[in-house]
Design a protein around this nucleic acid. Sequence first.
DNA 1: GTCAATCTTTTGTCCTAGACAAATTGTAAA
DNA 2: TTTACAATTTGTCTAGGACAAAAGATTGAC
Lengths: 321, 321
Amino acid sequence: MNTQKRSGVSISAVERDTGLGKDTLRVWERRYGFPTPHRDAIDERLYPPEQVEHLRLIKRLMDQGKRPGALLRLPVAELHAQLAQLRAEKNQTETEDWVLPLLKRHDVDQLRHELAQRLARDGLDRFVTETVPALNRLIGDAWMNGDIGIFEEHLYTEVVQNQLRSLIHGLANRGKRPHVLLTTVKDEEHLLGLLMAEALLAANGAWCLSLGAQTPLVDIAGAARGTTIDIVALSFSGAYTWRKARAALIELRQLLPEHTELWAGGEALVGRGKTIPGVRTLERHEDIGPALAQWRATHETHFVKMDATKQLGETLRRGKK
Amino acid sequence: MNTQKRSGVSISAVERDTGLGKDTLRVWERRYGFPTPHRDAIDERLYPPEQVEHLRLIKRLMDQGKRPGALLRLPVAELHAQLAQLRAEKNQTETEDWVLPLLKRHDVDQLRHELAQRLARDGLDRFVTETVPALNRLIGDAWMNGDIGIFEEHLYTEVVQNQLRSLIHGLANRGKRPHVLLTTVKDEEHLLGLLMAEALLAANGAWCLSLGAQTPLVDIAGAARGTTIDIVALSFSGAYTWRKARAALIELRQLLPEHTELWAGGEALVGRGKTIPGVRTLERHEDIGPALAQWRATHETHFVKMDATKQLGETLRRGKK
DNA sequence: GTCAATCTTTTGTCCTAGACAAATTGTAAA
DNA sequence: TTTACAATTTGTCTAGGACAAAAGATTGAC
């Protein structure tokens, strides 16, 4: 009965957990000889946990720009070494080490308190552009190393999200321009990046409208069409591939009215030098402020020029909202 | 070259837009003869827009419980008729008809204002148990009816969720008992029900800890094990089937420590007379208050009497279910 | 030396058609 | 009415092969 009753997870579970497509997993197995899942009674792939972990490691490095062909021949130890080196290059001596003990102790109240304190001390801008990303990396690393479980990760996400939400709540810029529509596309359920963007936009005086996660493309376009939305902003986490993000952005760009700008940010987009026509890629959080300023500059002259013409009425109507 | 240069979208775009998997799309084509995408130069499927629309229609009816086999043989007109009929069956005279015009006008600020006003007028309890559910039904019907799009639905959800979150934020019951862990299981991404429950629990003096959506079962159990959690509360939306919910609850019950209670609520659970051993099913929001009171009563005596006889405590625990 | 154009390798996604289990529905017996 | 079993429906998995888009390497012009 238990002759090598090795357990494992299905290919769809691995796709969900690692962000690597089913096709990709199969083709890697064929080409590189890894992963090597065993099979269940009906010959379907069963990935042992350590291989899933291995795959996650590879994905992590790919997200940093490495290419799979080389990574797949390397042993786990070497992958860890590469990650360590990357971390060293970035030379981010993480000072936020207070968070892990609190998380492990499940001390939510204290966690909330500490976050609030840091927010008050550093100000919103620095909190969102530095503190939270630093914490995210810390948590990500800790999870990868097995220091914390999914429970602690959920917990952290929930607490930070709440902090950001209440922050945003106090920043409603009724009627101010530009009007920004925020959301994520299908299969992208990470809200944290979106909330961080929303906080920064709101802090810079934009009027934000968040649709939450996973709005279908046609509906985003429909929303932009019927409303006073100036900018559509999308967030892509590291779980999303650059290819997919690119495809979605190109398609959405075609669906959107020409006067609506399309901004995109998130881990999936950093590092590529490439630009997508008609899409503004914001690689770092710090870019949001300047981008907004630039939008305002462009559209101020636009408004001025229009003053002479009959479009003034429309401008006023839109501006009032 | 341009003999019928009909354009269309790729199979992955259709997957993203409709929520139907690639495999499913291909197997439908094979089995039922629909959809019938034409092919591009390299023989890949290109779906014309009207077929994508047709597919979305089918998906909508499937979400209402219809099965694909029948729907795929029906013409578009008939699908529309079915949607209309479903809407007619649900025909409830709702009094909250102020919300639809606001939504259609995308007047978010006014929507927020009206909600806040109703909350102040009716009080938290009535707001959560009556107003919000009534609005939910209204929105659901309007969506099925085609009166509003997914955009408006997201918008509504987002605004109400924000309202609830800021409400909960002001109700932190540090350290009070019971400690309730709230979350949803895998494949259940609707947060609204969870937030409504959290608001009511917090209003009744419970200390709540929300993990957001889709926590794996083992991690829920792990969380309950290492902490002071008294009750694990799960929410199942109407999109979830009763069978799946039941299976998940039974499995989770086995994973949880015996002294941790398991509560479950949501549309997926109402109407069935069935009970699940070891699980407290809360069919209506109004049940939350009494359930909490009962927990407190039991555990007060429990604490007192436990000193006398160990066995009594266990008897109480078991007898309650 | 720098930049652009071209060739080569890498890599992800799509293709076909068959198979099977999980979920649902239909039917018969208790 | 419920319970048990059989029939259907339905989604997801399998196999290699194929090809274009992206990335890396090489060449040529200035």
